[in-house]
Design a protein around this nucleic acid. Structure first.
Length: 262
DNA sequence: ATGCCGGGCGAAGCCCGA
């Protein structure tokens, strides 16, 4: 079973490249972020035509998350618990039936947090604390669980092209990294790091300043696996080539393969 | 790279992302 995460930077602008990538990579489940559209405007038909069920939690102009799944959804829950006043569409979670059990998947668009320090950084850190509390609660289910998304955190200096230049940025500041590590300490596994120790593995390249051409990238899109998922991890990948195609997102898909019969 | 690009909104120029 292949599960991917992809920040599309506007689903309306990415329909054709996303469809092409789905045909080539054939993921069973895809977590999408930064839809920048309301639920009614999501191009469901384009993905249903490829055999995907669609769960959307959209928002006008900003944010917006979705899950595509070849297998049907048993449950879908939008919104991260812990703050009813939070109206950003940044979280959706689904339970998917597989042979002999279920797989739970969440699509996460964690706040960027810049400029830091400031209100936006406080919001990011508070959001991460809510995510940690929810992630802790989910572990009690002992399920095959994947928390996929744009975490807007470079976990270590090995995940940044120029660590010194980014040290004060909200993506790299110690509080952001400490909160990311708390997720790992709960028992989650960073799928990419489970298979690859080398630096220079990136999932985002800015549109500006020739970042792509200079390979000035960041690794901020992650798949965090519950122990039950990590035990079944057989492969991971970052589809870097997508960034070099026409009209790309500034992020690329990250995927993992779990030994689970779909 | 401090927003140089790209997208949304909405019909010019501002806001936003990372």
């Amino acid at each position: 079973m292949r599960i991917a995460t992809f920040n599309v930077n506007s689903i309306a602008q990415r329909i054709e490249p996303l469809k092409q990538w789905l045909k080539e990579r054939e993921p069973d489940v895809v977590c999408l972020q930064e839809l920048k559209c309301v639920d009614q405007a999501f191009p469901r038909g384009a993905f249903q035509d490829l055999g995907y069920n669609v769960a959307v939690h959209g928002q006008k102009t900003y944010n917006g998350v979705a899950i595509l799944s070849k297998l049907k959804f048993d449950e879908v829950e939008a919104r991260l618990p812990g703050d009813h006043s939070d109206d950003h569409a940044r979280y959706i979670e689904a339970v998917i039936s597989v042979k002999g059990g279920v797989v739970r998947v969440a699509s996460i668009y964690l706040p960027n947090g810049n400029p830091a320090p400031g209100e936006k950084y406080d919001y990011k850190l508070a959001w991460m604390e809510r995510l940690t509390a929810h992630a802790r609660a989910l572990l009690a289910n002992e399920e095959i669980l994947v928390l996929g998304g744009d975490y807007n955190v470079c976990p270590t200096d090995a995940d940044v092209y120029d660590p010194e230049a980014w040290r004060e940025d909200a993506l790299c500041r110690p509080e952001s990294r400490a909160n990311f590590r708390k997720l790992l300490y709960l028992g989650y596994t960073d799928a990419v790091r489970a298979h690859h120790a080398e630096p220079g593995l990136y999932s985002f390249w800015d549109y500006q300043a020739g970042a792509w051409q200079k390979d000035n990238g960041l690794r901020i899109d992650h798949l965090l696996l519950s122990p039950q998922a990590a035990d079944r991890l057989t492969a991971v990948g970052i589809d870097k080539a997508e960034r070099g195609k026409t009209e790309p997102s500034d992020h690329v898909p990250v995927w993992c393969e779990l030994d689970v019969a779909a």
